[in-house]
């Protein structure tokens, strides 16, 4: 069954994820323009883009554990999912800067400096920036595999920062942001633990390959 799924996945080109994952964002924007997003379309758009960014980030973090523990191979989609996560981060940021703050740069700067949830959000954005810029074959070649992988470990702090940003936005302690933070923390912890454990313990049946 798993082999069959992996075979099917191999036939799907990774590029389909770009238009596929961008489509909901475009549709949502259209709904906003045509007044179908309720009383506060700016907030809906802002929150939805932010939430999708976080969900795709979780998807990126889940790809390695899924391969290791379930045997599902989604590795070739990781770059596309990661870049689309960043795409929604940028849209989220643009809705805030343009439709929410109306390019009031003084106000934007004040928010970044004074409001912890925005400071943290901007930090997450800055952490993601080098990842997005180097998510192409050319950058991978230029940096070399080891340096590139090291740089891309920034994914983990970026994801946690993003989840904390969500938690800080809300007025009290509703469940959703805590669930996101728990999932992200769990995935990061899993990764940390896994790196520390002896490799053979982690992949049943693959021990022989790892002994070298």
């Amino acid at each position: 069954m798993l082999t069959w799924v992996n075979d099917m996945l191999r036939r799907i080109p990774a590029w389909v994820l770009y238009p596929g994952l961008a489509l909901p964002g475009v549709v949502y924007f259209y709904w906003g323009v045509t007044n179908q997003l309720g009383a506060d379309p700016v907030e809906r758009l802002e929150h939805q883009y932010g939430e999708w960014a976080l969900q795709l980030m979780i998807a990126v973090l889940a790809i390695t554990p899924l391969r290791r523990f379930v045997g599902l191979n989604l590795l070739k989609f990781r770059r596309a999912v990661g870049l689309m996560s960043f795409f929604y981060v940028v849209l989220h940021l643009m809705v805030w800067v343009v439709l929410d703050k109306w390019l009031n740069w003084a106000g934007i700067w004040e928010d970044i400096v004074k409001r912890p949830f925005i400071t943290v959000g901007m930090l997450a954005f800055l952490l993601l920036l080098p990842l997005a810029v180097t998510s192409n074959n050319q950058a991978l070649r230029k940096l070399g595999g080891a340096a590139w992988r090291k740089l891309h470990l920034l994914t983990y702090p970026a994801a946690i920062t993003g989840a904390v940003h969500y938690l800080l936005i809300v007025k009290s302690w509703p469940p959703e942001p805590m669930i996101y933070l728990a999932i992200v923390t769990g995935l990061v912890a899993m990764r940390v633990l896994w790196t520390r454990m002896p490799r053979r313990a982690n992949r049943p049946g693959a021990a022989a390959q790892n002994q070298s």
Partner: peptide, 13 residues
Amino acid sequence: WSQESEKLLGSGL
């Protein structure tokens, strides 16, 4: 957060 401005709901995107 800053309370200097407000958004009147129902007035569009």
